[in-house]
Design a protein around this nucleic acid. Sequence first.
RNA 1: GGACAGUUAGCUCAGUUGGUAGAGCGUCUUCUUGACGUGGAGAGGGUCAGGGGUUCGAGUCCCUUACUGUCCACCA
Length: 875
Amino acid sequence: MEMEKTYDPQQFEDALYATWQEKGYFTPKIDPKKDPYTIVIPPPNITGQLHMGHALNNTLQDIMVRYKRMQGHPTLWLPGTDHASIATEVKIVDKLKAEGKSKEELGREGFLKAAWDWKKQYGGRIVEQLKKLGSSLDWSREAFTMDEKCNKAVKRVFVNLYNKGLIYRGSRIINWCPCCKTALSDAEVEYSEQDSFLWNVKYPLSDGSGSITVATTRPETMFGDTAVAVHPNDERYADMIGKTLDLPLTDRKIPVVADEYVEMDFGSGAVKITPAHDPNDFEVGMRHNLEVIRVMNDDGTMNELAGPAFCGLDRMEARKKVEEELTSLGLLVKKEPYKHNVGECYRCHSSVEPIISKQWFVKMKPLAEPAIKVVKDGEIEFIPERFSKVYFGWMENIKDWCISRQLWWGHRIPAYYCEKCGETVVSEETPAVCPKCGHTHFKQDEDVLDTWFSSALWPFSTLGYPEKTEDLAYFYPTSVLITAYDIIFFWVARMIFSGLEHMHQIPFSKVMIHGIVRDKLGRKMSKSLGNGIDPLLVIDKYGADSLRFSLANGIAPGGDTRFYEEKVESARNFINKVWNASRFVMMNLEGVTLLPIEKTKKTIADQWILTRLSETAKAVNDNLEKYEIGLAGAKLYDFVWSEFCDWYIEAIKPSLYSSDETIKQNAASNIYYVLVSVLKMLHPYIPFVTEHIYQNLPIHEETIMLSSYPTERSDLSFPQEKAEFEAIMDIIKAIRNVRAEMNVAPSKKLHITVKTDKEEIVRKGEGYLSKLAGVESVRYDSAYVPEKKVSSAVTSAAAIFIPLGDLVDTEKEIERLNKEKAAVQKEIAKSMSMLNNPGFVSRAPETVVNQERERLAANEEKLVKIEENLKNLAD
RNA sequence: GGACAGUUAGCUCAGUUGGUAGAGCGUCUUCUUGACGUGGAGAGGGUCAGGGGUUCGAGUCCCUUACUGUCCACCA
């Protein structure tokens, strides 16, 4: 197959993915003799469209998965989607609204049908988009949080927790979203600081002896007040405790109670207590046996307990009216501007009302304890480690988890109420007979479960739990969970305690946390800002490989990353470089019988690159084992571009063009080996282009995907020759430097004289000097005394003299050499000061001291040569 | 209020157990040499936020200050 001059990903990416999938490369073969490597995908919402966060997350997972697969582990990356209860329901309600229909009109069944239709139509979008990215997911195991398997797991878990007393139903203050009309968990509320007011209201004492002023940010809740609390030690109110107050705008009398919850220094030191609408007040209410009066409906309007004048008003209208009436009664002392945090629904962003409501809860303390322990004990490791602190912070202060949602799209709570006696029966199937009264008709609980309840079971529900499947036995616990830090609470923490509770085993041994993708200015990408970049458009323009590499290369663990097109361009350029290097190699393989690398003759350039290849392979493997994906990527980038392409390919050209067939064959075999190794090492990052090139090589296995990942090769490491070639490289760089500074055209061939005590090394490098520095002839003369008009290039190994005739501007040459001299002197001074420090010599490791001595010696040699040259020029 | 990050070249960021500060982009010079101009060669550019400490040696470890950001808590 001919390779085009320029890399064009559109020509092969989709086709390659289809082939990989058809051949079943993504599906692991279960082999009890081998260690499996398993990742379950953080299931994207079915409402979702691939965004940069997904692109980053899946790129990182795919890199690890492809790497481990190439190492020979039976590797499973399990795909799936999340039903996203609230997000999907909101979306479908909106769609119905646009069609002039409502949820209520359709009824539960009709609505669910519409939801499933919607899921069928759009739920697969993101799945297709993941394929565009190149994700090597095992589609034969694709899961959905509401499929049969997962439903069964959810029911089993719910029943088990209920039977253990870890799930209960009760009236608590919960977060209520009046817009979505459902309860939310604490984690689903986002707080933001907003400008509001603090209303100071006078509550008169019933006996007419005065009044107490209270401050509130939600005056409309006053209809639910059942006390005013003051601090027991507060002398200002000491004689009022126990008296009653006339609650304004109502005909109720409420007591003044003493409670240590009150901060004496804040405001007036008196707090109105509204147990039905504030979690703290609820606690106070419990302590003082206060009545709980809920004055708000589910939709955020006031109910009849707010009185006829307010009943039916929206909470904000009611707030206004309360203010007006209090003002006209002269009870509003003042209204001061006040900034405070307001909770918002994480889905619709309307402000959340704390409200008392009867809901289902998971008792968290007993579940949290073992979940804290496994991380403390290191059974589960967070990468980077600092995120374990975030985890502990949450787990150690965890409150019970409100899991019921007043929605229809989701797992319906498996609780049944006897229609006759009201007995609650929790079971996986509809019960036949009431255990209490023998009645046979039940009504199932109307609510569904929090989306995250099913996500929490994902690592084992997808593998077959509660059945004891082969998958579950082999692939659980999974190897690592890779996700962004923003769902540590929602998901990671809950999977950990769920795995421990239901599987009696951790769900994964590592949690790799990465950052989020920001825009060029560092802002979070969001719909409202309109600053998101669609990964699919990037793929269309640059290819999935470029996108992947631009996301994964050079990122720091746990850190956010900024995304902008120049980065993708840079990645594309790199891939183009790989493409052309490959093209070059292939051009030189034609008609050559390749030798195995162990059998080839090797030049010092070959030995140098093989050594560097081995070193790079070792470094990259080390990094990947530690999930240092960005670092490994940067090393590959540098090795491929600056060493393989810039030096090795150029250095090997004479051998490849040689008329001696043996030289040619050996050179071709060596560079072929290096190229294949490079492609393999890059494959996890840029899977498409590496496979495409690989398939075009004259000799290759069936797929690069299942070839073995390169590792350190001590049998192909040549430290001595590597050092020699590096000495040659130094000379070449020095000569190039002189050429550039002296404005010597590349076409001008040089005749150089070399003064060195390492003549045999320089001799080995003559061919490279010719090819890479334009040196036509080399003369060795240790007694050489240069004349004027001779420029010089100095390295620690040799002094190179380059007669340039009139091209040499003596003054400029002196200036240049002086500059170099100063630099070398500075280094010498530094080395001397280190070596003259007795502490350094005695306490630093021997290798470091020796290294410093060598450095000093090399620089001193260099200095001598420079001074000689300067002397000659001055004469 | 608490916790955690970040502060390194003009810009965006790496820097893996402390051992001579790096890359990409941009800038300047130069080269159409038979893989690649999405390229080659060369250059310039940083007292690693400030201060203190530990150490033979600190961008890296400790303390502290400042600024930026994120998360958690929620005194009504």
